Amino acid sequence: MAEILAVGEAMERALALLAGGDVVAIPTETVYGLAGDATNGVGVARIFEAKGRPRFNPLIAHVADLAMAERIARFDPLSEKLARAFWPGPLTLVLPQRPGNGIHPLVTAGLDTIALRMPRGFGGELIARLGHPLAAPSANSSGKISATTAEAVAADLGSRIKLVVDGGATPVGLESTIVKVEAGTLRLLRPGGVAAEEIEAAVGMKLLRGAVAGIEAPGMLASHYAPGAAMRLNAEKVEAGEALLAFGGRRAEGWQAVVALKNLSVSGDLREAAANLFAYMQDLDRSGAKTIAVEPIPFDGLGEAINDRLSRAAAPRDIIPSET
């Protein structure tokens, strides 16, 4: 089983594993990431192996600073403005790659673009010490619920990796927002820890939604973030034998008879709800219920990202995504 070390004790062990082409589960402000040296093909391959992740699904490369990012990708003025406004933080930018940037092709899944993010805390310090960017998708089995605690990582991947760095519960609780600048427009590829309204306010322009063609960034598979139980969204009534993922102060009809109940935020705070989402989904999945009913959640602010994760968790599990 994986060794679990606190952030204050884990740096040298993590560096040794990464330098040797291995992977390490690390805390970030969003969710826990399964990190490997993005320039080392063996390390990147081990990420895919440990997660069981489709190899046509690209990874985010995490950087220590803007200078490292600019050695990897070309920044247009709008992307640079976004980086300076939101880095370090939960925003990922999809940018054209620079030739000879050293990033292993497995990271980008054959695309001529790369997704870059600058994390806070231990992750940023680790990258700076290593001197290389880290490829780091969420530290969970592919398609399953993202981990927001070291214990959740160990329960899922503990038999497949050597080290989990414990930084406590992640404060944001949702993966990063992913955006891409295209011909002077700004496109939202995945809602996440930075609300669309914050981005629009920072740059003074509206975000377009969705990719133009195929999978352009991580987290775009139709079925993703899924528990073992089925998910039923926007539930106004709870059926017998279901668990309930609640939100706010008003309960769905029949809630008294649920198998288990977790309220993302009694006060209706979307930031609190985002931080609790994955952990509460895991708790309800362990309740034995075959279905998790989810009360309606507003789409404003971080509600857009929460609803995105819930819709992917509820999607049919037999979807075969296109490799284009």
Rank of each mutant, 00 (worst) to 15 (best):
E49N: 01
K81D: 12
F75Y: 14
S79K: 08
D65N: 15
H62E: 04
F56P: 06
G52D: 13
R55G: 05
R74C: 01
R55S: 10
R74H: 12
L59C: 10
P58N: 11
P54L: 10
I60D: 03
L59V: 04
A69P: 08
F56I: 04
K51L: 01
E80R: 15
L66D: 13
K51D: 02
I47R: 02
M68Q: 15
R71N: 14
P58T: 09
G52R: 13
F75A: 07
N57W: 02
I47V: 14
F48Q: 11
M68W: 07
I72G: 02
V63Y: 08
E80C: 02
F48I: 08
I60Y: 09
A73F: 05
F48L: 09
G52Y: 13
I60F: 08
P54D: 11
L78H: 09
P58F: 12
F56D: 14
D65E: 12
A67F: 12
A50I: 08
K81G: 14
E70N: 05
S79C: 10
I72C: 02
F56K: 04
P54S: 12
F48G: 05
N57V: 04
P54H: 08
N57G: 00
A61N: 01
H62T: 06
R74K: 07
R74I: 10
L66A: 09
K81L: 15
R74D: 12
P54W: 10
L66S: 08
H62P: 03
P58Y: 11
N57Y: 00
I72H: 02
K81E: 15
A61E: 02
A69N: 07
R53M: 01
E80F: 03
E70C: 02
E49K: 07
E70A: 10
R53H: 06
A69H: 09
A50M: 07
F48C: 06
P77R: 03
K51C: 03
S79I: 03
A50K: 04
E49H: 05
A73W: 07
R71C: 05
F75E: 13
I60L: 11
R53A: 04
